[in-house]
Design a protein around this nucleic acid. Structure first.
Length: 488
RNA sequence: GGUUGCGUGGCCGAGGGGCUUAGGCACAGGUCUGCAAAACCUGCUACGGCGGUUCGAUUCCGUCCGCAACCUCCA
């Protein structure tokens, strides 16, 4: 068995990954609605797809990775009273909507950068594609799957379902959906409760609105993803990703829009979904307050954790869990990941210490194959990590026993670790610079304390040595009455 | 209530009909070490309950219990 296999939500099976136009791969991932800070749960999805993007690239594919920014159209709920999230928050924070969008887009980028995610190839915004969205809606109406009602345009689910399946992504059946639809107020504009808005009429006081053939309004939430994926990846593309919670209604609606627009049934070949991050067994969610921000985790200011954890520790903890399984974030899990990551990186850095000889104590080629097989099995990073730890144990043991590797194997071993740990899992190995200033001060203080100790023992040669060496480094020592002071 | 998925050893977390000692963390004993740390060696424990299929089930089926997600905005 060889080659990448991915779990396709559409078929609920693992399928051999065969791009439509190899070596090109088109991947679209639903980005955030930038109306507030991203939380750690949001990050998991983007980190998961970052890993997927990295692995596809490693395999030699030329990936065009599109991840959108939703900056308009995301309604609070599906009723007619639903307010646009951006508009509502802009009012609340007393900001121009685009100012709000910029603020949270900046925050989003900053957090993802700390998690060492690669930037997407294209990061389009909904407001930057209004013309395309309007044209898209017109096409849907023309094709008979949309209708205008009181200045808004709705997607005609019933009509669509006559010709196509509706519910494939989320595994729902249209009859069940109809039976289970709650009676919401203000839905009299719709022909059927399942219909969803693709263009929404704006009240005169609404702060975000644009001219359209149906009057002033703004695009519906699901629309921008259909429009932008079509524009940048084509009417049929390889991978569509996002969080599990977007399966319904967002992805279902997106797929319906795609088909209604182009007439093509297979607009997305593989639907991939990242699972939720839970906190104390419950989903993290902005709307319920059950969450904390990444920064609070990095600096240890959330009461939900005992100490601070670096972005790389968090990222590694996520990699120890399969992207499609729910992951419960806990202090124990993070501290275990922290220690494990240290062990992994220490061993990786100590490969240099291994002697070169005529034979190898470690089957490096087999290791590489195991790693590749793990990743080929639907990006199974936990199994990948297990194989790497097996190698860690052998590396450490080999060093203790002074065993050797051939020059070729040693180079290959370094490459395997570098490929899988750094390039694919995206673990950045570097000193934690954020605490270096504090560390420096503490080290100086330590030297000063040692000198004070030597002085009290009348060990003048040691105390003078410390003072001289510190002076050479630009540190001034002053023996004051109350004790030794120093300055840089 | 409906739909989907999950329940693995002290904790996290893979796997998937009969040997995977999965892996990590923790724990216990040992080697090494002036002491410690690291590293190494050894040990440790599991598949929610009850039925069924099978020569054999943690793995398949049924059922019950528990949990989660979705059904309404969410990555």
């Amino acid at each position: 068995m060889s080659g990448l296999n991915v779990f396709n939500t559409l078929t609920r099976t693992k399928e051999k990954f065969e791009p439509i136009n190899a070596p090109h791969v088109g991947m679209y991932v639903c980005g955030p609605t930038v109306y507030s800070d991203v939380h750690i749960g949001n990050c998991r999805t983007f980190i998961s797809f970052d890993m997927i993007y990295r692995y596809l690239t490693y395999l030699g594919y030329d990936v065009r990775y599109v991840r959108n920014i939703t900056d308009v159209g995301h309604l609070e709920n599906d009723s007619d009273e639903g307010e646009d999230k951006i508009a509502k928050k802009a009012k609340l924070e007393n900001l121009e909507p685009m100012e709000l969008v910029q603020k949270y887009t900046n925050g989003f980028h900053s957090v993802l950068e700390q998690f060492n995610t690669l930037k997407p190839s294209i990061e389009p915004t909904a407001t930057g594609h209004l013309l395309e969205q309007i044209e898209y809606v017109q096409q849907i109406i023309e094709n008979g799957f949309g209708y205008e009602s009181n200045g808004s345009v709705y997607f005609d689910v019933e009509n669509y379902a006559k010709e196509h399946n509706y519910g494939d992504v989320s595994g729902r059946k249209i009859d069940e959906l109809q039976n289970n639809t709650r009676a919401l107020t203000g839905q009299n504009e719709k022909k059927c409760p399942l219909d969803f808005v693709i263009w929404k009429r704006a009240d005169p006081k609404h702060i975000m609105q644009w001219n359209s053939p149906w009057g002033k309004g703004f695009p519906g939430w699901h629309l921008e993803c259909s429009v932008m994926s079509t524009k940048y990846l084509g009417e049929e593309f390889d991978i569509h990703g996002g969080g599990m919670d977007l399966k319904f209604p967002h992805h279902e609606c997106e797929l319906a829009q795609n088909t209604a627009h182009s007439g093509k049934v297979n607009s997305v070949k593989y639907w991939l979904h990242a699972n939720m991050l839970t906190l104390n067994g419950e989903k993290m969610s902005k709307s319920t307050g059950q969450y904390f921000l990444p920064q609070q985790m990095f600096d240890g200011t959330t009461p939900l954790l005992e100490k601070a954890y670096s972005p790389m520790v968090v990222r590694f903890a996520m990699m120890q869990c399969h992207y499609s399984s729910t992951m419960d974030l806990s202090n124990d899990a993070l501290s275990a990941a922290e220690k494990g990551l240290t062990r992994l990186t220490n061993a990786m850095l100590s490969i240099d210490k291994i002697a070169i000889g005529k034979t190898s104590f470690l089957d490096v080629k087999a290791l590489r194959i195991q790693c590749e097989e793990a990743m080929n099995d639907d990006f199974n990073t936990p199994v990948l990590i297990a194989h790497l730890f097996d190698a860690v144990k052998q590396i450490n043991s080999g060093i203790v026993q002074e065993q050797s590797l051939t020059e070729e194997d040693k180079g290959l071993l370094k490459k395997v670790f570098s490929d899988y740990v750094i390039d694919i899992m995206g673990i950045k190995i570097e000193a934690d610079n954020s605490h270096s200033a504090e560390l420096e001060d503490r080290l100086i203080q330590l030297a000063v304390d040692l000198r004070t100790n030597a002085k009290s023992n009348k060990d003048w040669s040691t105390s003078d040595l410390i003072r001289e060496e510190l002076t050479k480094l630009g540190i001034q020592i002053k023996d004051a009455k109350g004790g030794t002071e120093w300055s840089k």
